[in-house]
Design a protein around this nucleic acid. Structure first.
Length: 623
DNA sequence: ATAGGGTTAG
């Protein structure tokens, strides 16, 4: 009765059916549109539902969308496929994957679009295995995938070995169905290869694309950057720029990742200026990248300035800043900033936050504070379960404080199987604090798990040497010669006028190599007068002492440092970057250089910064 | 009606 009355009313006062709904929806008057839906009752047209659902999707209006769904179920005997597909998208948007799946389950017929919408829903929410299960179901049902399906499903193949295997099978299907050169499919495909570490395959796909756009170019650049192939990323970026590539904020974020890795401050500043000119600087992602870039280039105050100027911050902003302080050994700043984060209470700390805080306490010599945070975490106060890496930080904390036995007990009680990294951290502590008893046990354990890592043999033999157990030193050396492989050759570099000067151990390739080795020799003579004693224990090979000293003087960081002294004016700080951990001998060497030549030396190694002033290092000689 | 690349940690 009232329905009929309403219909009469709507016929007299409004234009009939969807006309009115259309204007209400396009004015964003969702509530009024819902009233109109009720008024139209059984007369609702499919276009009307479509417009309403669209509005609910855009506004993430969950309750309203549910009402539309219920109304549709009541009035339509068989809702058409496109409306049901829109419902899948709607429920996904409201993070109700169960409801989305139910809509798919209730469809009497499905086509490629509805399947793809559901696969996309799972992959967007991070349910890779559900997405990957759905794909073969779709094939079995006889539905042919299209370019949308392939582009979508490949994004779920980046998780692990299982996903990659499936990804390769999907690749061959893509070749068979001739979608390989489709730009969306190609970008997704090359990204999958890059994330699996197969950069050559990724590049192959990229090179075969008949056309390129921002996304495909960014995908391949970031592929290199994510694998730590920073120079290649930078080189490709420059080349593609010459060829007229357009860039957007994602491109610059990826390039900044590469520049962070290279610690290329001048180039980083240049990108920053460019970002400002293009008015891209308000993207939070880009601000986060800039914070990270400045901190990894040694310029923490710039990072902080950007951080302070941000109107909105994500957890990544906080983490990047905390990691910055941590790597610079500024434990107090880490604690202060973490307090601020909690007080502000806008952004919840995540597991990376705690990694940064714990390792910040460790690098900053604040063991007790770090332990407090760990136990706070373990009690579940923050809703984050400590993971293996957090336990690793605690081993580091205890080891640094000389509490080696405690660290050993802690490892035994962990709910994880200790990894090589955990044992390695404890072995390092045993060496610094000369605990041969535990060190020997840990060392052998480590040689079992990781026999190919040369570094482990060196630390163990150093430990024996410090105890005067020369027979054992020799045995370890022999073992090493049999089994160890040096994975990554040592490499150091220094940036001068936007150019990176790279040196390898005993390098012969730099144009000024003669000058540089002469300078290293000169330095060593001067430093010896001031008490420098080469630490022959740092040499891997079994050669005579004179040879060992030569090997030490050939270390890449000494050459980069010497080059810095030659090529920059007196009094200017020298910034050296090394791809591995710095060795004890080079650390001593740099400390003496800073003292005798009155130069500040900033040395970034794989793990952290060493700020060396007047013969003292910010790491407190533990790293 | 359905689609691709990004920032912290390891």
């Amino acid at each position: 009765m009232s329905n009929q009355f309403a219909r009469q009313l709507s016929l007299t006062s409004f234009p009939p059916n969807s006309q009115n709904l259309n204007s209400l929806c396009s004015n964003g008057q969702l509530r009024e549109a819902l009233v109109e839906m009720a008024v139209q009752g059984l007369e609702m047209k499919f276009e009307g539902y479509y417009m309403l659902l669209n509005e609910c999707v855009n506004r993430r209006a969950f309750r309203e969308g549910q009402r539309v769904h219920a109304h549709m179920t009541k009035t339509c005997y068989l809702p058409p496929m496109h409306l049901r597909t829109r419902l899948i998208v709607f429920y996904n948007n409201c993070e109700c994957l169960n409801d989305a799946q139910r809509v798919l389950d209730e469809m009497p017929v499905r086509n490629v679009v509805s399947w793809t919408a559901m696969i996309s829903a799972y992959s967007k929410r991070g349910y890779a295995s559900e997405a990957l299960n759905l794909f073969p179901q779709m094939l079995r049902s006889g539905t042919e995938p299209n370019e949308f399906t392939f582009a979508t499903v490949l994004t779920s193949c980046t998780g692990g070995a299982w996903g990659f295997d499936l990804g390769r099978q999907i690749h061959s299907l893509i070749i068979k169905t001739n979608f390989e050169s489709h730009i969306f499919v190609g970008s997704s495909l090359l990204d999958m290869y890059a994330k699996a570490g197969r950069i050559y395959e990724a590049r192959g796909v990229f090179d075969c694309l008949p056309e390129r756009d921002v996304v495909s170019c960014t995908a391949i650049i970031s592929g290199y950057a994510q694998l730590g192939l920073d120079e290649e990323a930078l080189e490709l970026f420059r080349q593609l720029q010459r060829e007229g590539m357009t860039s957007n904020y994602v491109t610059y974020a990826s390039v900044l990742t590469a520049l962070s890795g290279l610690a290329a401050l001048d180039l980083g500043r240049q990108v920053h200026n460019h970002v400002l000119r293009c008015e891209l600087h308000s993207y939070v992602v880009l601000q986060n990248s800039l914070i990270d870039m400045y901190s990894k280039c040694g310029n923490l105050s710039y990072s902080r300035r950007i951080f302070d100027s941000m109107p909105e911050r994500t957890v990544i902003s906080w983490n990047a800043m905390l990691v910055g302080y941590s790597k610079h050994g500024m434990g107090k700043e880490v604690v202060k900033l973490f307090k601020l984060m909690k007080e502000e209470n806008k952004v919840k700390p995540d597991s990376v936050t705690f990694l940064a805080v714990l390792s910040g306490c460790s690098h900053g010599g604040m063991e007790d504070r770090g332990l407090e945070y760990f136990y706070e975490m373990a009690e579940g106060a923050n809703g984050i379960e400590p993971e293996l890496e957090h336990y690793g930080c605690v081993v580091d904390l205890l080891g640094r404080a000389g509490r080696v036995e405690e660290a050993f007990e802690f490892i035994k009680k962990m709910r994880f199987e200790p990894t090589a990294a955990i044992w390695g951290s404890l072995l390092g502590a045993c060496r610094v604090h000369s605990n041969v008893e535990i060190g020997e046990f840990v060392g052998f354990r480590l040689l079992q798990i990781e026999p190919e890592n040369a570094g482990n043999y060196v630390i163990l033999s150093n430990l024996y040497a410090s105890a005067g157990r020369w027979e054992d030193v020799r045995n370890v050396r022999e073992l090493m010669v049999e089994k160890a492989v040096i994975k990554e050759p040592g490499r150091s570099w220094i940036e001068l006028d936007q150019i990176l000067h790279t040196f390898h151990a005993s390098d012969r390739s730099h144009p000024r190599r003669e000058e540089v080795s002469a300078k290293v020799k000169e330095l060593s003579v001067k430093l010896k007068e001031a008490g420098y004693v080469p630490d022959l224990g740092c040499v891997l090979y079994d050669v005579d002492e004179e040879q060992k000293e030569k090997v030490l003087l050939g270390h890449s960081e000494k050459m980069a440092l010497a080059f810095g002294l030659i090529a920059t004016p007196e009094g200017v700080p020298v910034r050296v970057i090394k791809n591995l951990r710095i060795c004890v001998d080079c650390h001593n060497f740099a400390k003496l250089v800073s003292k005798i030549y009155g130069r500040e030396v900033s040395l970034r190694d794989k793990n952290r910064f060493h700020h060396i002033v007047g013969g003292t290092c910010s790491c407190g000689d533990y790293w």
